[in-house]
Nucleic acid binder design. Structure first.
Lengths: 193, 193
DNA sequence: AGAGAAAAATAATGTACATTAAGAAATTAC
DNA sequence: GTAATTTCTTAATGTACATTATTTTTCTCT
């Protein structure tokens, strides 16, 4: 069944009875996205938060010089969205674009707010989810500043082993924060060792 | 009264009655730290989480090459700690050291767990607190990879205006991820414009 | 207040990565 | 299935920042 994956994801941190499960699922709608289509663009308001059930998307922004920086890749069983924009309902800083034909479950801001009213247990779920994400992002923010491109590439491979041969080097470079030219050079150098 | 600050901090997101306030405060103990003393060292288990009521501390790690990288400065009215170690009770990656004579309120892991049992509202408090921190760290992790040292310096001044003349350039450099020599050069260059 | 230690400034040289440009290989589109 | 686009590779040159070393300034301790 379609909602198994999201219910299993939730059950990592909280238990829901049947009634709660039904209510929870009723707050989501399904959405299919074709390759290269956008869930969100910089400047729009993020009306939804997303749970990925199939495919792969990238969350990125374009800086003042026009370069693209990928903040995360969202794959099956991951949550994604522009949290700042979703929470504050201010214009988004990020684009979310499908790298493959993908499927997501989306929840609107209204339903997200409703969720906490109806099933307060979800405060706990998100407390723990955010706590874990925080640990990851604190680490990543430290690593981005102190690790070489080669170290970050090795980390990328560890973190997203399934993506290495699934997405373009151009996108990997944009995630690492280097030019595609330099990544190409790096890989050549690493292969020769 | 000593606990006004922390109660006011909490009240940003949840309301506590008198009884809850008393219980909450009973879970903390006060601690004074002399300049240069440590609340935590890399390799130790983080037994406490901290709320700063006075002074200034730095949270940093030492990488494999021996360089120091400052992850955050903790000042009055901020929360601090090594979250990964505190939650998992595994060895810490971070040092927490006082840059000035400081005072904190500390809560133990046991009391932190107890808090959620006794006053479930705190799930909500931390859900919102972590949500906000996440937005900050996602931004910072993106900026660390795409911004120049000069941009990051300007951001530092915006984020910590009170610290600019309070802490050494050496520490600012370790926060920015550059050498003190380069920061000195940067400042000279920026002053002459 | 004065000695010693730590921080900051300056400068020379080195390195990781960017930029630009051009050709080769792989994808996409009709 | 071939043209058109996009991606990848390679190479030359440029730049932001690191490293090392020396001197000057500021802070710390008793």
């Amino acid at each position: 069944m379609k909602y198994e994956l999201i219910l299993k994801n939730i059950s990592r941190f909280i238990n829901l009875n049947q009634e709660e499960q039904d209510l929870y699922i009723s707050l989501f709608t399904e959405k299919k996205i074709k390759k290269k289509d956008f869930l969100l663009r910089q400047g729009e308001i993020a009306r939804h938060d997303y749970f990925i059930t199939k495919g792969c998307l990238k969350v990125y922004n374009i800086d003042t010089k026009g370069s693209e920086h990928i903040s995360m890749f969202a794959v099956k069983d991951w949550w994604s969205g522009d949290m700042a924009s979703f929470i504050t309902q201010q214009p988004a800083n990020y684009f979310i674009q499908a790298l493959e034909e993908s499927e997501v479950l989306q929840i609107s801001k209204e339903n997200f707010d409703l969720l906490f009213e109806r099933i307060p247990k979800f405060e706990r779920f998100y407390r723990i989810l955010y706590q874990r994400s925080l640990v990851t992002y604190i680490q990543r923010s430290d690593q981005n500043i102190s690790f070489s491109a080669e170290d970050r590439y090795l980390n990328f491979i560890k973190k997203y082993p399934s993506l290495l041969n699934r997405i373009s080097q151009k996108n990997i470079a944009a995630y690492l924060g280097v030019t595609p030219e330099f990544l190409s050079l790096l890989r050549k150098k690493m292969a020769s060792m």
